[in-house]
Amino acid sequence: MAQGLARGSSRLVTGRAERRSPGRAGVVGLVGRDLNTPAFAQLAEGLQHGIGEDRRVVLLASSHGDAGRLGEVLESFRSLPAEGVVVLGAVDRPDDVSRFARRGLPVVLVGDCVPMPNVACVGFDVEMAARVSVNHLAASGLRRIGMIGPPIRLPGSDPTESGFLAAVEAAGVEGAIVRAEATFLGGEVALRDLIEGFPGVDGVVAHNDLMAARVIREATDLGIRIPTQIAVISADDMGLGALMIPALTSVRPVRERLTEAVTAALGRLIDEPGVSPEPVAVPVELVARESA
C-alpha cells in the first residue's frame, strides 16, 4: 500500500504557477524494496523538498523485492495518474519499466538503467567506488585484494571491473575478480572461490551489503578473523552494514548529490515528455567502520 509523506512546509511557495501536467494528480511515486533503509528515507525526504515548491506530494510504495510486484505498483501510479515515479534499486524485469514508459509514465531509475524515452538513469560512479575501495584497503597495507561481483553478459562490459583493475595497478597491489550472484548466498560462494583461486587474499571488495554480509559470516565460520586476516568493504551502504558485527565499511553515493540528481531528472522528464536524458553518475564517499 502506498504511504503519504508530509510535505516539507519550509520549501512550499504560495502564489506561484504550478508546473503540473494536464490531467495529472500532482503525485510522484517513490518505490523501493524496503521502505525502512536510511537511503530510502533520505531520498524520500529530499525528493519531497525538491518537488514541494510545485505543490506535489510523494507517495511511497514497497516492491518487497518481488519482480512482479513492481509492475503492479507502476500500474497503480499510472492509474492515479501520477506525474512520475522514482524506482530505487535493481530492476529485475526491465520490460515492466519499458511498458509503462511507453504509455507515458516518466520513470527515474536509481541504481539501474533501462535506456529509452521517458526513463532517466541515476547511479553512482562505479569506477570511482572501485578506486576508493582499493585505495582504502591498500593504505592499510593489504596487498592481495579480491573483488566479488555479479555475472556479466560480455567481458569488459562492467565499469566496476575496469575501475578495480586500474586501481590495483595504480596502487601496486595484486587483484583478482570472482563472479557470483549478487545475493546473500552469492557472497559465500564467491569467498570460497576467492580463497581457493587467489591464496593469501587479505582484502575483499563486495558488490553490495548482502554479499559482504555473507562474506563476513562465511569467513567467521572458516575461522578467518575480520578485519585482521581479511578486510571487507562494500559498495552499497543501504542500511544493513551499520548493524553488522563487525560493522561494515562501505562506499556509497554522496546522498545529497544523489537526491539533487534524482529531483532534477524527474523534473526534466515531467517538463519534457519523451526525452531520453543521459545517465548521471553521482560521486561516492567512504563510510569507514570496523570491517576494513
Rank of each mutant, 00 (worst) to 15 (best):
G89V: 07
S291K: 00
E256Y: 02
R102F: 02
V107K: 10
A219S: 01
G123N: 08
G200A: 01
I195R: 13
E18D: 04
L80W: 09
P199H: 04
R103T: 14
V110I: 00
D96A: 11
L80I: 14
E83H: 06
V57D: 03
L243Y: 10
V280I: 11
L240C: 13
E127H: 02
M211K: 07
S250L: 07
Q229G: 08
A129D: 03
G26A: 06
V280T: 13
S63G: 12
P38M: 02
D193Q: 15
I230L: 12
V282I: 05
V251S: 07
G50Q: 04
D236C: 04
P283N: 06
R19I: 05
G267E: 10
R20D: 11
R11Y: 10
I195C: 12
S140G: 12
A288T: 07
R144P: 07
R7N: 14
P199R: 05
R144K: 15
V282C: 06
R20H: 15
G149E: 14
L43G: 01
R78D: 12
V254Y: 05
P117N: 01
G200D: 03
E272R: 06
L47D: 13
E45I: 06
F124C: 10
G149Q: 15
A180P: 02
L165Q: 14
G239Q: 01
P106W: 05
L43S: 02
R103P: 07
I177C: 02
D158N: 15
R24C: 08
A44M: 10
R255I: 07
A264P: 00
L185P: 04
A292V: 05
A25I: 00
L266Q: 02
I152S: 13
V114S: 07
P150L: 06
I51V: 15
V232R: 11
G50R: 02
V215F: 09
G197N: 15
S234P: 10
D92R: 15
E169F: 08
G239E: 00
G123A: 14
T160K: 07
P106C: 08
C113Y: 04
F164T: 14
L240T: 13
L35I: 11
A190M: 08
L269P: 14
E260A: 15
G223D: 03
D125S: 07
A281L: 07
A129E: 04
